[in-house]
Structures are given as structure tokens and as C-alpha cells.
Design a protein around this nucleic acid. Structure first.
Lengths: 152, 152
DNA sequence: ATGCAAATGCAAGGCAGTTGCATTTGGCGA
DNA sequence: TCGCCAAATGCAACTGCCTTGCATTTGCAT
């Protein structure tokens, strides 16, 4: 049990045990640039760290989500659950529908809306999901047809 | 077959047959203020228009979606598929995670961001999807944890 | 080291959605 | 109006994603 236990303090702070699997999952999530499905994580875990059960992956991720260590969301097109580390930094991705590249942006336009809604209809926003599609610098010149991501 | 066939032209224009079920589903969607799950639609259909099979509901909705007559999306918290008529008007909903109520808002905060991104990284936004969730006026006082407290 | 609650593996189960196939139906042409 | 045929539907079985019950193992406080 080398330096894997660098997550131990983090986990103990949340009142849960530090285990081999939990450390491995945290490590893997830390390496992941984008949200992953449970199965993607499961497969990678099987490859690098001996055996783990899929139900353990789900249970661990849900535990982490309940502690706000990870953020669980659902993929727009097929509804599969996605998990990513909660860096407590707020950011969104924009997807280029030409080359499928994901680009991170720090801009978030929800701030004002939050206050507006609170005043208008007394609604407390606790979270949101924003997905933006379009063409990146490189792809716009090819003018590929967009998918069914219209509106706007 | 009374005036239900008011949808006939619409369906024929898309190259598909006008049937009892399809008319009923279109009518129901037209009456629905918010996106519905397939099962909600199924139950309502069973109540008003004799028998229909759940698979027919799914197949019909998918057909409509492929013709862009309806918009299919996924509920943020549980990933269930939602279907709504495509009115080609731009609007967003906010979801109360306490009671699952959906509230329409006309505000759309993407406008400015669109220009910002164009200037900053030369990205052309062609579409987006925004999902907002939180607690509505009625639910915030109960401080219910997120979950399926439909029809509180 | 020991004991116990928490974590895990395993297998079965649950639920949303899909599919294969036999039957029915809409709509066109005769 | 009739009959035909592809399209639509019902039915039941099935898939995939995820959850749960229970027996076993493991982390960690003492």
C-alpha cells in the first residue's frame, strides 16, 4: 500500500474507508480528462488493477457522488450515467460536431439567470447542465451538416 | 375517424401513414405542456383511447423524433427519455428535483456566450442544450432529498 | 491481535427500452 | 368499392444498464 493512500485522508474526511478499489477509482478519475461511464471505468480498472466487480464500481461512484466527490450526470444522447471528479471548479464543454473534439470553457452564463429565477418564481437552482454544439475553427470551413442539435 | 385526421396531412407530408395511434399520440403531445415520458403517455393513452402497446408508443415516438416532429431528450436526474412536440420555438425548462415538476422559462443565457466564444476561440455555436434543476417554491421548505417524489 | 461495521463479490433481480415475428390495418390501384 | 401489400401494431421475449440481497472479506479503532 504505497502512495495510493494519498487519498486516505480525503476519504476519511468524508467518513468513509480508504480501500484499494476506492483509491484506484479516484486515481483513475483524476487521470480522466472527461466524464466516463461506469463501464469505461470498470474496463480500465480490470486492466490495471486486478479484479473488481461492476457493482462495486457503481456503488463506489454513487457513494462518491453522495459525498460530492464526483459529479454524476447523464449523457444527452443515450442517457447513460457519466461520472467525473468534482474539482469544484465550474466549467462546461463545447462539442465540435465536425470533428467531435471537446473543448473546455470557463464561461458560465447561469449566474444571472439564477438570481432572476429566484426573484421571479422563487426557484432555487442547485445545479445545471449545459451542452453546446457547433463548429470549431478548423471544421467550420468544411461546413459539414450538423446533427439533430438544432434550436437557437 | 372524425377530425382526428387533422394530423393526416402532417403525417403524409413526412411519408408515414396516419393511424389511430399516431393521431392520438400527436393529439396528446399537443395537449401536453411539458415533455412526457413514454410511460406517462402510455398510461394516458390507455385511459382515453382503448388499447395500445407500450412498444408502439416507443416506436411511434422514435419515428416522430426521426422526422423531427418531436424532440427526444433525457431527464437530468434519472436519465429517462422525455418526448415533446417540436414547436421550433426556443425555450428551456427547469426541473424541481423534489417533485419532478417542470417549469418553462423563456430566458436563454446563451446569446452573449455565443459572441464571446466566437471572438475568443473562433467557435461557431449551432445549438445547445440547457438543463437546470433545483427546488421549487413548494419543495424547498420540505428540504426533501432529490428523488422521485412525483406529485408531492 | 481482535472484533465489528463497512466494503466487496457474486448472482439474481428490476426497470426502461428494443426486437422478432405473426397479425392487422391504411391507403393505393384496379 | 374491393383487394392487395407494405407499413403499423400487439405480444412476448429479450437486452442493457443498473441495483439489491446476502455471504464473505477487509479496514481500522481499540
Amino acid at each position: 500500500m504505497d502512495e495510493n493512500s494519498k487519498y486516505k485522508e480525503l476519504l476519511n474526511r468524508e467518513g468513509i474507508k480508504s480501500t484499494r478499489h476506492r483509491n484506484a477509482i479516484l486515481e483513475l478519475l483524476e487521470e480522466s480528462e472527461f466524464p466516463q461511464t461506469a463501464e469505461q471505468l470498470f474496463i480500465t480498472l480490470r486492466e490495471k488493477t486486478a479484479s473488481i466487480d461492476l457493482s462495486t464500481v457503481y456503488r463506489t461512484l454513487d457513494t462518491f457522488a453522495s459525498k460530492n466527490l464526483v459529479i454524476k450526470s447523464n449523457r444527452v444522447d443515450d442517457g447513460k450515467a457519466l461520472y467525473e471528479l468534482n474539482h469544484n471548479e465550474h466549467k462546461h464543454h463545447i462539442l465540435c460536431v465536425g470533428c467531435h473534439k471537446l473543448i473546455s470553457i470557463e464561461d458560465c452564463p447561469i449566474g444571472e439567470l439564477k438570481q432572476t429565477l429566484k426573484n421571479k418564481i422563487d426557484f432555487d437552482i442547485t445545479g445545471h447542465k449545459l451542452e453546446i454544439y457547433g463548429y470549431c475553427h478548423d471544421c467550420k470551413k468544411y461546413k459539414l451538416p450538423p446533427g439533430n442539435h438544432d434550436n437557437l
